[in-house]
Amino acid sequence: MIRAAAVGDIHMAPETQGILRPAFETLPDCADLLLLAGDLTRHGTPEEARVVAREIQGLGVPVVAVLGNHDQHDDRPEEVTAILEDAGAQVLEGRSVVVDCGGERVGVAGTTGFGGGFVGRSAGEFGEPLMKEFVRYSRRCAESLRASLDQLAEQGCDLRIALTHYSPVPDTLAGEPLEIYPFLGSYLLAEAIDTAGADLAVHGHAHLGTENGMTNGGVRVRNVAQPVIGRAFHVYHLHARQPVGAAVAGGPT
């Protein structure tokens, strides 16, 4: 069993320095890793990124993050990424990382993701160049997530987690105005997760949404935006699935 702590949308700025640190310092007692689901800063400035870096540095558990739309607002996502990585975090965009949690290998595949909407109510790759690029960008994010999850399967991970900022499902948006769902997530992310397979999908972004959801393929989804979970983080206990045939191999013949 591994214990994954997760939170998103902490929106840190100089005036919030230190707010989360006391709770984060309890992580080694209750979690094996910390997932950060984007919108870690308010505007994506290096100054704000350094606030986050000080909050997560030397926590005693591995930290894996994706950026959110706020973290890109200042047009310096590479700098934000570098500052967080200097503090020890793995910041994923279209790639994955394998974390050793007490002998179990946990793979995390991450992308910020993007919007576009959900099945039957989604934007199409048609019309103005901006509209086509909107949908193509979302498609590229989803494709990178699928490829990263596939790679983790090839590496034989015991558990795989999909980490995004935007939501893969509408379930966890319940509470948000229906009219803005296309700006909150995309079914392409869920399709990628279901195609490659995962044990859990974690996202943020939807402050007015709800915590629990599930993809059509049965993968559990958790919206960990801090206003949703109402805590510094939530912890999920995950159990590695028995390898196919394992029960037969150890049983009577």
Binding site: I10, P22, A23, Q226, F233, H234, V235, Y236
Partner: peptide, 9 residues
Amino acid sequence: ADSSSPDHA
């Protein structure tokens, strides 16, 4: 936002 630790998993 509440920044306290969770009381359950």
